[in-house]
Design a protein around this nucleic acid. Sequence first.
DNA 1: CTCTATGAAGTTTTT
DNA 2: CTTCATAGAG
Length: 652
Amino acid sequence: MDSDFFEIKIEEPGFIKEDLDEEQYEAVKKSDGKSLIIAGPGSGKTRVITYKIAYLLYSGISPENILLVTFTRAASKEMIKRVKNVTNINIDSMTAGTFHHVCNMILRKYAARIGYKNNFTILDYEDSKDLMKIARNEYKENFSDDRELPKESVVLKIISFASNSLKSLRESIMEVSPYLIEHENAIEDMWVKYNELKRDINAMDYDDILVNTAMLLSTNKDVLNNIASRYKYVLVDEFQDTNKIQLDIIEALSSVHKNLIAVGDDAQSIYSFRGARFENVQDFINDDKTKLFKIQTNYRSTPEIVELVNEMIPEKSVPKRLKSIRKEYMKPTIIETFDDMEQCDAVAQLIENKFDEGINADEIAVLYRSHSLSMTLQQKLDSKRISYRLLSGKRFIETAHIKDILAFLKIVQNPLDKISWMRILKLFPGVGTKTASNIFNKIFSGYQEGTALENIIEKVIPAKHKNIIKIIKNIYLIKNNNPYDIIKFVFDEFYAGYSGLNFKDSKSRNMDIERFMDIAANYKTLEAFLEEMTLSENIEIKNGEKDQKEDQVTLTTVHGAKGLEWKVVIIISVNPGDFPNGMALKEKKIEEEERLFYVAITRAKNELYILKQTTGAVNPYMRNSFLIYKKENDFIQRIDKNYVEILKLRYS
DNA sequence: CTCTATGAAGTTTTT
DNA sequence: CTTCATAGAG
């Protein structure tokens, strides 16, 4: 139904009604001011937002007066495409993207107001970890603290939670890792140091993008008014996953015209570790000014699946009961296997059976709680030559070789970017942490004095490192701001050789870089390219020349499956300790695991398979844990067996 | 100072 | 199966 739906072209606003059901129509037509649309899974949420935008356009609102905030870049692109399809109106002047895209856009313009230069670098998670490591070492040197200091990743997790939820450091420690409360002072010192380091090198991490935007808007009324008066309508998708600071930002951006329309499903809130609070939904409902709309018809799944879904609606969510409009098909199936190996056999077998039935690979997905649970399955599929695409795991731009190349671009954009300088310098033989740091310090002070970099390179890098001088000097001389040229130069003159010497799989890595070059060729400016690379998810890597995207089974974490759907969904390792995750159980966060399971089962259109093992958790860390035997931690035991078929598989 | 070998340890979800 | 820390050789 969904696919042909968007072929319909609206000629005038009154026509909309025939394309939407009663609930959807109400939501499109009557939402304004402060509105909340609670849209259950598969209820045509995308359709409602699409038609809402179309409706606004036909009501005379100009696209540039609309702000659309989505959870992923892909979602906003998809919606823009659909609006264009439906209306034939050019909406390029509409602002659309994730919170980070929108905030980045604002910050690039007003960076000076908060003491940044507008060519600031965006640090990804690994960069942040490197920087925090420096902060941690400095703390260690300055204080004689003989206790074991918390690891930088934990400190980052705590301060990230504090930034996103606007809670105090103490509260955040208690929430994230209570046993670290004795280190409160040390963590605070590291946080301060880390923030200083970021300022020094003109860099922001993912949290700063939000925190600094909120600060900019709250301390500069003229900026706030300037931006907020532009946006007559602010639409926010996946509202249940917004955190406190994001809520503050959208409230600020809609503060002039006061049209804030939020769409979401509190039962699908799965990002509490990032400070997301599904209570945002509840708070909205409790506000008398809010208009509330519920859409509960489910267009996606069969009645059998919807029945199970209704059983598994997380307790602490807004009460709702979904209705399926589809024909009956088959009950969800629980498959019990002995261990991980047998599970993989069963999944491979199942996928092959579906192929035989004529189902396309891109209509099949395997979902799991954590990436590591997919490792043995990947091997199995490789050996069976079943081709798959991975949505979980390391992102393309997080692989070492792509990060190396990116570092060269980043020092062109922001010559103060210490993290990238260190990374680049250490690639050259004979340069370790110490030498790299010495060189960077000289570059830093030289640049601060205002000298052009191409003129100081020779003075600050020891003459014996001829190659470094040549490469660096040249990338600063290219200076035409074209990312393709810089990558090509770095690759041809240096990295191809480096790759051959240092990577066993240099061939495939070089192919990645060539692909990266192709992507870069589509961007006119370095800034635009770097923004897209650091803020957008999932840059797809094509395997060589053959683009087999159409014929691939999808493997992803449940988080990665958010907003997606497939005819056949296979959820693996639903064992206490695996899914629900052991860490989450230890931290007593079972409710979020329930919501995750809810998200997982609602991805299926026709067929749903849930796999478990008699040996218990696959995750070795959870083996023999008492958690395994607790009924309330076992999702399968919770399921009323009337709603499912049970299949016990035994292989010899 | 850099680089390599060795052993140890820690495993969630991501813009 | 990784990454991470450390020791010792170059």
